[in-house]
């Protein structure tokens, strides 16, 4: 049965989940296994929540399971899940906003100051030799104002219009933030590379 599930497409698995949702969760577990790395990376880097990222990813999948009844199959499961994940992470950020006071939806472009940025420790320096770890450290060092639009654009591939709508800011502000976010990303990435070398 497990072998069968592994070979099936997302759409076939979704159909299976909808047929036997109260009885068998193996099909859905396979969908989780297939998409967990991507969902987790997005939850982690969109929110910069080290400790909450796995909880957020879990909540996204549980939400997806119960929302699957409303999934009409007009888009791919992957795209549908991505939308769900973005909404969940943005809600988390909005809830957290009161605590960290990092504006997500102001029309001021923000200075992109790396709120919550951490200088690399010695153990971190060793890890930075790996490109992926450098990417992670770079994103972690960026403030919400620049990181969130950057992740939405370059990780999730959302259009500028969609990002503007979701963040509740103007189109020009979105473009500006993404441009500045990319610049900062490249700068920090290069700096960390010289640290790790």
């Amino acid at each position: 049965m497990l072998e069968d599930v592994r070979d099936q497409s997302d759409e076939a698995l979704v159909a299976q989940v909808r047929q036997s949702r109260d009885v068998d969760t193996r099909a859905f577990e396979q969908l989780v296994r297939r998409h967990q790395r991507r969902v987790l990376a997005n939850c982690r880097y969109m929110t910069n929540a080290h400790h909450d990222a796995e909880d957020l990813a879990q909540e996204v999948f549980v939400k997806a399971y119960f929302a699957l009844e409303g999934f009409e199959g007009r888009s791919q499961f992957k795209t549908w899940l991505q939308r769900l994940k973005i909404n969940h992470c943005l809600n988390y950020l909005r809830r957290r906003q009161g605590v960290t006071e990092v504006p997500l939806a102001d029309d001021d472009d923000g200075d992109g100051a790396p709120v919550g940025s951490q200088p690399p420790t010695i153990t971190r320096e060793l890890e930075l030799r790996d490109d992926r770890a450098r990417i992670a450290a770079t994103l972690e060092s960026m403030g919400d104002t620049l990181r969130v639009p950057l992740v939405l654009r370059d990780v999730d591939g959302l259009s500028y219009d969609e990002i503007a709508e979701r963040l509740g800011i103007g189109l020009s502000a979105v473009k500006m933030r993404i441009k500045r976010g990319r610049e900062e990303f490249r700068r920090v990435f290069a700096t960390l590379g010289s640290v790790g070398a």
Partner: peptide
Amino acid sequence: PIAELRDLELD
């Protein structure tokens, strides 16, 4: 590095 963001995954 920007292009690599597209394939960002985490275990």
